[in-house]
């Protein structure tokens, strides 16, 4: 997760070393993903011996990145240059599908 196109992300209440001059309100981004069949079969085999399910780790990371991107896009359209107090949430909404959700507060810092 980089500082996407000039938008600073932080999960602290302020951006350390900077001062918040304006608040724009809550910004959110989400994505719903279902599991890939091929990955599911591999994960099924891996379930026998335990350990990391690499395919799922990557899948969730990509999805979380996308949710974050959408959040950043919303912040940018509001005129914010930073999103503070970012939180992540994951919820299983249906069989084999999960929602990944990112939210924070869009602010202007200087």
């Amino acid at each position: 997760m980089q500082n996407r196109g000039g938008i600073i992300l932080s999960n602290t209440e302020t951006v350390p070393g900077k001062r918040i001059v304006e608040f724009y309100g809550v910004v959110t981004g989400n994505t719903v993903r279902a599991k890939h069949l091929g990955r599911d079969i591999m994960a099924g085999l891996k379930n026998i011996v335990g350990g990391e399910l690499v395919g799922y780790t990557e899948l969730l990371q990509e999805s979380r990145n996308e949710a974050t991107d959408r959040m950043v896009e919303q912040a940018r359209s509001m005129g914010a240059n930073a999103v503070v107090n970012v939180r992540f949430a994951t919820s299983s909404i249906a069989q084999g599908a999960a929602e990944l959700f990112a939210y924070g507060t869009g602010v202007r810092v200087e």
Binding site: M1, P16, K46, I48, G50
Partner: peptide, 22 residues
């Protein structure tokens, strides 16, 4: 006394499963 230059949101994740026996 910490002087912050720049910040970035960083994360690390892992999906793990239990073996059949356990």
């Amino acid at each position: 006394n910490w002087q912050v230059e720049s910040v970035e949101l960083v994360s690390g994740s892992v999906v793990i499963s239990l073996d059949y026996f356990k």
